[in-house]
Every structure is written in structure tokens, then in C-alpha cells.
Design a protein around this nucleic acid. Structure first.
Length: 497
RNA sequence: GGUCGGAUGGCCGAGUGGCUAGGCAGAGGUCUGCAAAACCUCGUACAGCGGUUCGAAUCCGCUUCCGACCUCCA
């Protein structure tokens, strides 16, 4: 594999930086996963699909990647007042289930959806409840370091103390004074000394469903703590990439960095990568706004915002058409266009699989160079902060040559065997392995045999110049979703439409 | 209100100082019995107003509009 210089936008420095892993050949990546208290909606999916792209490209470059993505199954509160109810507990009460039944239900659902979108499972998927001991240890360390205090069974992180020696607003670019003046005072004043302080450990009320013993009494961990504890455990004090949705940057990740520095003296990750939101009519898709929809609603089209159903790969392709750092606005028009484009590139992938290069004759240097250039573009665009839209452009350019060779309107012997091989390898690598797309309409069973029979009958009619019959067959098939494509050579292909 | 980000042709969406992506839609053409598909050709767009520069979508300032975060969300 050729050495590729990869550049990654780092939220910490607000610049694109060359990606240099701490240990050559290895990458440690931590991504904040879902809180499993309800169905994942499409906006949630986008984030994980974005990181799947990043993960896949790192793998493609030959890195050995340890990809850790957590499951938050405790500690995530309603509201951020540290007095709200645990999301999982609340849902458990509502549905009259054990909290772990809720967790199980939505974890299974999450995995199913991730698989449908063809995302690779992470290397490790740790849960908050599975790491209570590690989190308690972390709290103790932070207390010992003097950056936290205990009040009535709860432990809080002392942001002002921390700020004396560290830049608390490093990630979100805010000054402490601004944060202090602009942070709304939350109702039900609590025991915190400073209003920016956040809970590391929260004392549980007796009726609280999820609680564990600790040196400070029965309680449960704060939301930000689990990520620090688990990234520490599986990736070490310092690792390469920490990712999550942009909405986590200002608070969750800021607090996470503070925790890590307080306990270990080091910023956990070199590169902070934040993916942007999926919007609907310009607004962030979220449950509270009521503009979110679920993956299965997308597939079936059963939602007021959807004109029809769209397949998982069409959705994935749609996401790939925008860079992960931009918002993507959902609209039927935009995804319709993506659907056509996706099918086009997928058709080329199919043609390529069946394509054999003609005998190499006189090599057309210009063409040979052009095709190699497009192969280079695939890498160059992904190297530029995972620019998937540009990668699609390169694939589209390659697909034109593939189509021409497949249709025999150009002779594939005009390029060298090496270039032809590179064309095949590059197209497949980026379409399938890197962008994580797959072919959806591969027919099982007898469909193709049936179609071949019908095509044969139609061709007989054509030979007899019985165009009335041949057109009737073509129209009839179109009505039920099969499209016939005649070639110059007299053969006929079919595709589903 | 504070902080940050965005505004690109009918739609989506790359591009960060000159070489002016790509897709969808649209127009024309090649091919075809006719189509379709495929292939070829065609759009000179960068919110507005100033400024810097030989040259700006790209840099700077102001204005307008939109969004995110600051309050649960990926």
C-alpha cells in the first residue's frame, strides 16, 4: 500500500492537521455512542455512519484500529441540573420494565439499525454500568488531585479550581468569565459551589432504580464520567481520535477533557473530530422538536415528511454526498437525486464485476493517465479530511469509463493491464470498503432465469419485426418494476427500478 | 443576550486568492425499429455593500438572513 498523507480537522485547534498516530500503524479511536433509552432516529444514525466512514478509511489505509464506542446505559440525566431523572430509569418506570430490559431492548435495536446501514461494529463496545468500579476509581483520583469535592453523598468537579491551572474552555473556545455570566442558573439550587461545576457521582434517592455502593454512599455516575473511564481503560491516557456529534462538544467533551486532565494530567485525544447534524427544514433533527423519524419509517416511507420509502444504502449514499462536518438537510428532492446517483454507481460496480479486459493493444497514454488520475483522486479526496463527496466525484468519473468498456463503445485494451487492474481494485475498494456501500437488489432464486426467458421471447419478436409485441413486453415489465436495456450488440440487460 | 458556524447556478453539494468539481433536473447530440440505458456537448453561480490585490466565491470590515451550542438530544 502506498503511503498516504491523511489530514484531519481537529476541533481542538480548529485546523486541518496531518494525521500522525501515537504508535505508527495503530490508531485508537473513541466515539461517544448512544444513550439506549429509546429508538435511534436518523440523526443519531448519521453520526455513527460518519464515523464508520472514518473507521473504514483508516482500515483501508492499513492501520490497525481499536475503535471503542460506548453504550450509555446509566447516568444520563434528564436536563443537566444533576437533579433530573436518569433517562433509562425514567423510561423503565414508564414502560414498567427493569432498567436493564430497556437497555437490552434499545441496544439490540441500535445494533440492528447499524447493521442495516452496513456499519462495521466497533472493536469494543463498553457500557457505563459495566464500568462502575472504574468510574468510582476515577472519582477518587480526581478527589485526591483536589479537583473535586464531596457534598452529601454526591461528588462534583470543581471547574473554577481547575481553571486556575488549565484552560477549561479549550475545546469550546469560551472564556470562563463568559461561561459564568452566560450560564443560566438552573432551578432548584443545589449543593454545587460553582455554577459550572458538574457531577461526577450523584447520590441516589431511595426510589432510584439504578444505584451502586460507593465510598460516598449509594449513587450513580455522572454522564461525562463514563467516557473518561472507558477511554482510559481501553485506549490509555492518550489516544489518537476522540469523536462524537457536534452537540456534545461544548459541554460533554469539555467536561470529559477536564476529567481526564484532572486525573491523568493529559488531554485524552490528539484529534477531536465532531460530526455535524442532520437537519429537517433547516432545523436539527431531534426528538424534542418532533421532526425526527426512525430508520424503519424511512424505509417504508410511513412518515408525513416522506414522499416515499428509501433504502438504507440510498440513505447512506445521501450522507456520503455531504462532508461529515456540514449539516445535511433532509428533503425528498435531495434524496431522490441521491437515489438515482447511487443506482448509477451501483450499476457500474455490477458491470465491473462481470467485465474482462480486452486484449491489450496499443496503449492510449492519455486515457491511461486519466484513469490513473481518477484513482489518485479517490485517495486524495479521502485524505483531505474524509471528503466523501469528492470521492464520489472520482468514482463517478471512473464509472463513465467502466460503462464505456462494458458497452464496448471503447476498447478496454486501450489501457495497460496494470491500469485496468487498478481501476477495478480502486473502484471496488472505495465503493464497497471505504464508503461502505453495497448492492441491494441482488436477486435470489429464479428471477434472472425468468427474465432471461422473457428477454429471449421478446428478442424473437424483435427479430420478426413484431415491435408491437416486443414493446408490449417492455412496457409490461416496466409497469412492475423491471427495466430492459438493449445494447448495441443485440443483448438485453435488465435492472430493477 | 453570549459563543461558534453557515449563506455557492432550478435543487443538492465540493472548492479557500488566478487553472472557474460532481450529482439531480433541463437542452441538444450519438446509439436504437422506437425507447430506455450508456456516452458526448451545453449552464459562467458564489447573500448584500465596501476594502485589500494585477486578480476574490476564496482574505478583511460592515449589513442582512439562517443554524448550532449556552437547557435533554449524535
Amino acid at each position: 500500500m502506498t503511503e498516504q498523507k491523511l489530514f484531519v480537522y481537529n476541533s481542538l485547534t480548529r485546523t486541518k492537521e496531518e494525521f500522525i498516530p501515537l504508535n505508527p500503524g495503530h490508531v485508537g479511536m473513541y466515539v461517544c455512542g448512544p444513550t439506549v433509552y429509546s429508538d435511534v432516529h436518523l440523526g443519531n444514525c448519521r453520526t455513527f455512519i460518519s464515523f464508520d466512514l472514518i473507521y473504514r478509511y483508516l482500515l483501508h489505509l492499513g492501520y490497525k484500529v481499536r475503535y471503542v464506542r460506548n453504550i450509555t446505559d446509566a447516568g444520563h440525566l434528564e436536563g443537566d441540573s444533576d437533579e433530573g431523572e436518569d433517562k433509562v430509569s425514567k423510561k423503565a418506570k414508564l414502560e414498567q420494565l427493569e432498567p436493564m430490559e430497556i437497555v437490552q431492548k434499545y441496544t439490540v435495536d441500535f445494533h440492528k439499525v447499524m447493521e442495516i446501514f452496513n456499519t462495521l461494529p466497533p472493536s469494543i463496545e463498553p457500557t457505563a454500568t459495566g464500568h462502575i468500579i472504574e468510574q468510582i476509581e476515577l472519582v477518587k483520583t480526581i478527589l485526591d488531585a483536589g479537583f473535586a469535592y464531596e457534598v452529601g453523598g454526591s461528588v462534583y468537579f470543581d471547574v473554577e479550581k481547575y481553571s486556575e491551572t488549565h484552560d477549561y474552555g479549550e475545546l469550546n473556545g469560551r472564556k470562563l468569565e463568559d461561561l459564568l455570566t452566560n450560564t443560566r442558573t438552573l432551578g432548584g439550587q443545589d449543593e454545587k459551589r460553582g455554577k459550572l461545576d458538574f457531577a461526577l457521582w450523584i447520590k441516589a434517592k431511595p426510589e432510584h432504580l439504578m444505584q451502586w455502593p460507593s465510598p460516598w454512599g449509594m449513587g450513580f455516575p455522572g454522564w461525562h464520567l463514563e467516557c473518561s473511564a472507558m477511554s482510559n481503560k481501553y485506549l490509555g491516557h492518550q489516544f489518537d481520535i476522540h469523536g462524537g456529534g457536534m452537540d456534545l462538544m461544548a459541554t460533554h467533551h469539555t467536561n470529559e477533557i477536564a476529567q481526564n486532565i484532572a486525573c491523568c494530567g493529559k488531554t485524552p485525544a490528539h484529534y477531536w473530530v465532531h460530526t455535524n447534524m442532520l437537519t429537517v427544514n433547516g432545523q436539527k433533527m431531534s426528538k424534542s422538536l418532533g421532526n425526527s423519524f426512525l430508520p424503519y419509517q424511512l424505509f417504508t416511507g410511513e412518515h408525513a415528511l416522506l414522499r416515499k420509502g428509501y433504502s438504507p444504502m440510498v440513505m447512506r449514499f445521501f450522507f456520503m454526498q455531504a462532508s461529515y462536518r456540514s449539516t445535511v438537510d433532509f428533503s425528498n428532492e435531495a434524496i431522490d437525486a441521491a437515489e438515482i446517483f447511487y443506482k448509477k454507481l451501483a450499476e457500474s460496480a455490477k458491470k465491473l464485476a462481470a467485465l474482462q479486459q480486452q486484449k491489450v493493444g496499443k496503449i492510449d497514454e492519455e486515457t491511461d493517465k486519466t484513469i490513473n488520475g481518477f484513482c489518485d483522486d479517490c485517495y486524495a479526496s479521502m485524505n483531505d479530511n474524509f471528503n466523501s463527496p469528492k470521492t464520489l466525484e472520482a468514482l463517478n468519473n471512473l464509472s463513465k469509463w467502466i460503462n464505456s468498456y462494458a458497452a464496448n463503445t471503447r476498447n478496454s485494451g486501450e489501457i495497460s493491464a496494470e491500469t485496468f487492474d487498478r481501476l477495478r481494485k480502486t473502484y471496488n475498494a472505495f465503493f464497497f470498503d471505504v464508503l461502505g456501500l453495497k448492492l441491494e437488489d441482488t436477486e435470489g432464486g429464479d428471477t434472472d432465469e425468468l427474465m432471461q426467458l422473457i428477454i429471449k421471447l421478446r428478442n424473437e419478436a424483435k427479430t420478426n419485426k413484431d415491435y408491437a409485441t416486443s414493446d408490449k413486453i417492455r412496457e409490461g415489465l416496466k409497469q412492475i418494476g423491471f427495466q430492459l436495456n438493449d445494447s448495441k450488440q443485440g443483448t438485453t440487460d435488465w435492472i430493477r427500478i
